[in-house]
Amino acid sequence: MNRMVPLAILALAILAFATLMLVIAPAIQIRSEAPTPGLKPYTAQQLRGRTQYVAQGCIYCHSQQPRSIDQAPDAERGWGRASVASDYAYDRPHLLGTMRTGPDLFNVGARLPSRGWHLTHLYQPRAIFGWSIMPAYPYLFERKEHAEPGDVVIILPADRAPKKGVIVAKREALDLVAYLQSLDHTFPAPTRAVRDDGYAEKGEPR
């Protein structure tokens, strides 16, 4: 190549083509889908919790996209049916994740519905699972001499509990748990809903 302008134009044309294929065309197809029946928009508290999920970087260890039974035993682990595009209609930003240092959370609200469990687990994961390598989040909690009215006190085993006083959840922790509890996609997906069916045998249900 001895000419700069044609080089630049062709390079940009190739990028435009890639953008058409990977951004514009999927957008047209995905946006033509209605939200999955049963999917509810987030409440204000759940949205605040979602912001916490983003701020703490939960996405770097937890995915939110169970795979189909043809590919992996995600459903047998209790992570739920294979997710479809319309399950994410209210998600901004998307939190699909690319890592499973910890388990998939797309149905954690159905699998582990207890607020107390989540609060204890966030304060000290190893109080529940000795093998866990999840970080503890003590800064989402505070220690008080006595719980005040309205405070949510964390239940801890004796060796993890403070010597004096109680541990209560800050608002950030309560919001985050409200979001985790909202992660419940146990309603059925429409047949022919958009997802990667590259592993499915033809005509098999998912």
Binding site: L10, A11, I14, L15, F17, A18, M21, L22, A25, P26, Q29, I30, Q65, R67, S68, Q71, A72, A82, S83, V84, A85, D87, Y88, L96, T98, V194, R195, D196, D197, G198, Y199
Partner: peptide, 23 residues
């Protein structure tokens, strides 16, 4: 230029995106 610009969706294999774009 031609091939590298279109590889990105292999990060979503087995995910909730259209089969054709993953392929």
């Amino acid at each position: 230029a031609l091939f590298y610009s279109q590889v990105g969706i292999h990060h979503l294999i087995g995910g909730p995106v259209p089969t054709w774009v993953v392929t």
